[in-house]
Amino acid sequence: MLYNSMDKIAVKVDDLTVAYNYKPVLWDIDLEIPEGVLMAIVGPNGAGKSTLIKAILGILKPIAGSVTIYDKSYEKQRRLVAYVPQKGSVDWDFPTTALDVVMMGTYGSLGWIKRPGQKEKKAALEALEKVGMLAFKSRQISQLSGGQQQRIFLARALVQNASIYFMDEPFQGVDATTEIAIINILKELRKAGKTVIVVHHDLQTVPEYFDWVTFLNVKKIATGPVKDIFNDDNLTKTYGINYKVSIQE
């Protein structure tokens, strides 16, 4: 596979514990994600997958633990990281266009006050093209379908030109064609040496799409190469029920 040098760790999570109320929803998570993998995070609803990503990205403050990106604190490495939130986390009736949303991906490198210019617009248009949404650039975002909105979010992250991508259920509610289009983009990112972490629900497609996987259910159950650890044992431990995957090979 493509992760030839196991020594380079892109993301390292140490003893991470997160709670919204008293009861932790993530408990003592240790995680090392090697550079250049395309990793799935799997686990049942409420397992804490979104929470894990939010804690890594500093959106939530953990009770304990630390996160490093290429051996430095996340705050110092922010520019290397891009985020695709769950689609339902924003109000799509907001008065703005598809192009405008994608442009937001450039705001981080612009910093405070500076306005996006031609260069940023060009980058945004390229990203729209990549996700096949160029024709919709002037559309009001509420008039996009769910799958199209998902692709807009993906384009916004692509504009950031990051090294590490965190995506929360990018396949949610997209049709088969769009799913293939998106996975091809993710594979391209991996080919370019980027690290891509994806919250994923469809267990059937894990071996086909991903080379790395993390099982999560409040605690980390397992993490590693799909071919080594994607088995009934880990699935049963994660999902509680006795799992018989009809996954071949």
């Binding site: 939010k54 990205l57 500093g58 959106i59 922010r78 520019r79 990281v81 891009a82 985020y83 939130p85 986390s89 924003v90 109000d91 907001f94 703005t96 949303v101 937001m104 705001y107 981080g108 612009l110 910093g111 405070w112 006050i113 500076k114 306005r115 996006p116 916004r156």
Partner: peptide, 22 residues
């Protein structure tokens, strides 16, 4: 007018705004 871009992105997607370092 000065913070237009910041206001807009915060209104639309506060979590994402945070990850960009604002």
């Amino acid at each position: 007018l000065t913070f237009w871009k910041e206001f807009k992105i915060l209104l639309f997607d506060a979590d994402y705004t945070k990850t960009l370092g604002f």
